[in-house]
Design a protein around this nucleic acid. Structure first.
Length: 322
RNA sequence: AAGCCUAUAAGGAU
């Protein structure tokens, strides 16, 4: 059983859900009975493969098989519902965990907060956080908010454009001795973007760097988006240039998608075509986000011939036609 | 600890 769960975990981490499923099925054929750990590992593999419903089915199968379901397994099913944006289901799973006499831990709360976050239910997420804080003193650290708790809440506020609330959570986080990280950064930048405060994004980004923290790819991309939404076209491209100079970050297809969208909105088809060349030179494969903004930029600039050329290039790039 | 939790882009449809 130990051998199988280790194998499953390896394939799960490698993103090979198919292979993990085969192994899981082989177990039963060989007569090895999967335990809770094998089941939760398999659930995790399904989630990585975007198959959250499969993960839920596995959980139900496990219960039906009379296997003792533990906290980690419950956490995995809450997380599966979070991935599927089913916060009510996640909530129900959290409740039934208690009814089964299992004490939720920090990860259980985080998974539930994440479900609310994905559904845009900020108030609900904050409510869950309140109960977490109420329960924390009685549980000897078992449900203490973690850095993930704060980051998830900040992200929820960010999506809703609740900048002040997001900043207040960052301060609370620091008072709990959690150091803001790149996830925190991305959430705060999103909050600035949604609140229409690009200046604040600049301020936060600079303060972050001044404290010796290294922005990663997602942080740079979020920063570009905050500037783009604020119509700070030049600055956004300035960030892109900075990225190219860094050794540890490389613009990706999301970076180019965001920048291409900026070209479109700023009515700059020439820049869009230049950017397209740069992207090719950088070896980044365009996707439909990039192509659509590029086509829109050509359309806006009434560059019909160029648009047709781009269109032909798409035909040669079949995997981008999602 | 063999398993669980967090962040980034466009148009269309819903």
């Amino acid at each position: 059983t130990w051998t199988f769960s280790t194998l499953l975990h390896a394939y799960s981490r490698g993103g090979n859900m198919q292979r993990a499923l085969e192994i899981f099925n082989d177990m039963e054929a060989i007569g090895v009975v999967p335990n809770v750990i094998c089941f939760t590992t398999m659930m995790s593999a399904c989630q990585r493969g975007g198959q959250w419903q499969q993960a839920v089915l596995l959980f139900q199968k496990m219960e039906a098989a009379g296997i003792e379901v533990d906290v980690v397994a419950y956490n995995a099913v809450i997380s599966a519902y979070a991935k599927g944006k089913k916060w009510e289901k996640a909530w129900a799973a959290f409740t039934s965990m208690r009814q089964a006499g299992i004490q939720p831990n920090t990860v259980s709360y985080n998974a539930l907060i994440s479900a609310c976050e994905r559904c845009g239910e900020v108030e609900r997420a904050l409510e869950v956080f309140q109960s977490m804080r109420r329960e924390a003193p009685r549980t000897f650290g078992y449900v203490d908010p973690s850095i993930v708790t704060f980051n998830t809440l900040i992200s929820a506020c960010g999506k809703a454009g609740m900048l002040d609330q997001a900043l207040s959570l960052r301060d609370q986080m620091i008072s709990w001795n959690k150091t803001p990280d790149v996830f925190t950064m991305a959430g705060l930048l999103k909050a600035c973007e949604r609140a229409g405060k690009w200046e604040k994004a600049v301020e936060i980004f600079e303060a972050f760097e001044k404290q010796g923290m290294k922005p990663n790819l997602v942080v740079y991309n979020s920063f570009i988006n905050a500037l783009g939404t604020g119509e700070q076209w030049e600055q956004a491209f300035g960030v892109y240039r900075t990225m190219k100079e860094k050794k540890d970050v490389r613009p990706d297809v999301i970076t180019y998608g965001s920048l291409m969208y900026i070209c479109d909105r700023s009515n700059n088809w020439q820049l869009a075509l230049d950017l397209d060349k740069e992207m090719q030179a950088a070896g980044v494969k365009p996707n439909s986000y990039v192509f659509i903004s590029l086509l829109n930029a050509c359309e806006r600039g009434q560059q019909w011939v160029r648009a047709l050329e781009v269109y032909r290039a798409i035909q040669d790039q079949p995997e981008a036609g999602q």
